[in-house]
Amino acid sequence: MINCDNFFIMKIALAQISPKLGDMNHNFRMHIDYIQKAKKKNVDLLVFPELSLTGYTLKDMVEEIALDPHTDPLFKKLKGLSSEISFVVGFVEEKEKGLYVNSAAFFSHGKIAHIHRKIYLPTYGMFEELKFFGQGKNFHTFPTPFGKAGMLICYDFLHISSSYLLFVGGSELIIAISAAPGRGFSDDEGYASTRMWELMGEAVSRFFQSFVIYCNRVGFEDGKSFAGGSFIYNPGGQLVAKSPYVDEDFLVKNIDLEEIRRFRKYRPYRRDEKPEITLEAFKRIVAKYED
């Protein structure tokens, strides 16, 4: 990081990888390689995709591959590696005995700074996450060496309320990790569904005035093709960097954290936001819900 009077540069890397389905040891080695590579490039924060340590289409493998982040030996090694670089990994967590969740861990300063447990589990069409996973319960922001951050996992990010809650919670970095399969043809390169993620990235970063760091994966699992196209948007809704679609990539980019202040001075959305009014309105609306 380079901190001066009028800029605060941090280096972000996105590992747009293709994990091997159900092969934790292989994926762990791949993570170590990327972490070493990122360290050599003086990266401050390295982000891996959703379920990066396990692969996505696990089905009954969920219970076989789940781990306890506080006692697992591989996680102990990851903690050790995070003394000089921060990183986000995706994994299956056994939260309680027999309760498995789709989680993201933020490693920093030799510790796990935060674990986010996926709340919105897609279970429609080709998705069946609710069949195999329990749901997370909350969206938290948490302190990092780069400012307040919040994490989202894939379908969480497609629910605007998730990012809104992080915004209200003071997030400056919204980190969304994903295993999003592509769907539909587009006139441009890549899948039609990719536009949905980019649109959300642009809108969230612009109106919630945070950096949006989206890391998706690539590769095929049972014919599903993960679409790639990871990206970073600045707090003004401008695209800072983007990975190619469907190809593996290691994207390294400097961002200037001072941009958060600059955009918020220019348009004080956060200052003027009224979460108490939203809260009261929600209470009234939800109270009227019927079966």
Partner: peptide, 10 residues
Amino acid sequence: DFLYPYDRDR
């Protein structure tokens, strides 16, 4: 309910 992916361990 013995449900594994085609690409198990691949």
